[in-house]
Every structure is written in structure tokens, then in C-alpha cells.
Amino acid sequence: MTNEIYYSGGNTRQMSNTGANLASESVSLLVKVFPWFREDDYYSISTPAFHEVLGERVITCCLPLLATDALAGPGYALGNRKFCLDTQTSFLRLYRLFDGEKPGWLPPSARVLFIGENRAEYGRPYNDKADTFHDIYFAGDEAEIEAAFGLPERRGKYETYYGATVKNGQPVRVKQYLYDEQGGFSDWDVIWMMHAKKAAKAAPSN
């Protein structure tokens, strides 16, 4: 079962549970390129997708939250490992609640939910291009966002969200995330609310 699909220009990526046919094809690729890869470390694996900034094919593998906490510390809503097939490198992508100023290039209805930042792992080869960008993830009026970024009309039957890859303060690509039914990946706003409440409880009181 496909949990998520995104479109970025002419590039498409699908995310599915480990054990699904799509995931199994990616696992076969990963085992050949990364001898240390363990399928059991992840709960979801993507198809390979060309990353326009990194300039190569990338497979995304989602880590359980306990593993993310162990690798990066608490405070993240999600963590995954990006496997760069052509350079045989990898890095962590860590997602936290967005707490900055809304970028001026976003349309009025856009509400930023998360920021995704890249981190090298000790002792593992790393693509330095990952230091040059981050991603922000947002919701908003679909028609307004499509018009603002010149995107085709693509919308999930259940929900649609967006991700912008930001380099030197400006978006260099905008991804459309489509969900045709409710599932573990589909309710970004609910995940945001859960972690916002958790962060509020953890904040020191005056």
C-alpha cells in the first residue's frame, strides 16, 4: 500500500510500508549499495527519486521516533535517513516544529508546520550538498499555492500538503504531497498539534 506520493516537477516519489512490493524493490537497491543497511530499522521506505539539489537519486527510509530520539535527541516530530545512491552517501533528515518567521515568498493562506534539516552521521560518508538547503512543510489554499508557484492542479482526495526546498533563503523547488485516504502520513496538522502540545508542556513555567 502506498502511504504517500509527492510530485516535484517531473519527479515522483512514493512511500510505502516495509514489506510492500515497492519497498522491497528499494531494499534490493539499498542492500547492494549500503552493506550496513538493515530493513528492520525502518517502518516505511520510498521509491528512488531524483533530488534536484543533490543531483542524484535518493531513497528515504523513515525511522521510529525512539530511534530518532536516540540518534538526534528529543524534540523532533519525525526522523528519516536519506540514502544517496549515486554518491553512496547518507544523512539524517530531522523534522521539528517551525518556530521562525513565515517566509515572505509564501502566499497569504500558507501555514508553515515543520522544518526539515539535514545532519551528517559520524563515520558515514556524507554529501556536502546537503548542508546547502533545508525544507519547510506547509498547508494552505490549494489554488492559491498552485498559482503562487506555477504548480499543476494536483490534489489528494483526502488531503494535500506542500514542501519547499530552500536554498539561500529562496525556494528552489516545491513538492506536492498527495493523500487519497487517511493513514499514518496523512494528517500533518494533527501531528503538528500533538507535538506543539508536548513542547508547551515541556517548556519551563515562569
Rank of each mutant, 00 (worst) to 15 (best):
Y42F: 15
Y42P: 02
Y43Q: 10
S44R: 14
S44I: 14
I45E: 04
I45H: 03
S46E: 08
S46K: 04
P48R: 13
A49E: 12
A49W: 14
F50Y: 15
F50R: 13
H51Q: 12
H51P: 02
E52A: 07
V53Y: 12
G55L: 06
V58S: 05
V58Y: 09
V58F: 10
V58L: 12
C61D: 07
C61A: 15
C62D: 13
C62M: 13
L65P: 02
A67H: 12
D69W: 10
D69Y: 11
D69T: 08
A70G: 02
A70P: 00
L71I: 08
A72F: 05
A72N: 08
A72D: 08
G73I: 05
P74D: 10
P74F: 13
G75R: 05
Y76R: 05
A77F: 01
G79M: 09
N80I: 00
N80P: 00
K82P: 00
F83R: 10
F83T: 04
F83A: 09
D86L: 05
D86H: 04
Q88I: 01
Q88Y: 04
Q88K: 15
T89Q: 07
T89D: 04
S90A: 15
S90K: 10
F91I: 00
F91K: 03
F91M: 07
F91Y: 14
F91W: 06
L92E: 03
R96F: 02
F98G: 00
F98K: 01
D99C: 07
D99F: 02
E101Q: 11
P103K: 13
G104A: 15
W105Y: 12
W105T: 01
W105C: 01
W105L: 02
L106K: 08
P107D: 10
P108L: 11
S109T: 14
F114H: 01
I115W: 00
I115F: 01
I115A: 11
G116H: 06
N118W: 10
R119E: 11
R119T: 04
A120C: 03
A120W: 09
A120P: 03
A120N: 07
E121Y: 07
E121L: 15
Y122W: 12
G123R: 08
G123E: 12
R124N: 11
P125C: 07
P125D: 11
Y126A: 09
Y126K: 10
D128A: 15
K129A: 12
A130S: 14
A130D: 08
F133D: 03
F133Q: 03
D135C: 10
I136D: 05
F138D: 03
F138G: 02
G140L: 09
G140V: 06
G140P: 02
D141V: 03
D141K: 08
E142W: 06
A143M: 11
A143L: 13
E144M: 08
E144S: 04
E146M: 09
A148S: 13
A148Q: 14
F149T: 04
G150S: 06
G150L: 07
L151E: 07
L151M: 06
L151D: 05
E153F: 12
E153I: 05
R154P: 00
R155W: 03
G156A: 10
K157P: 00
Y158A: 14
E159M: 11
T160I: 07
T160C: 09
Y161E: 01
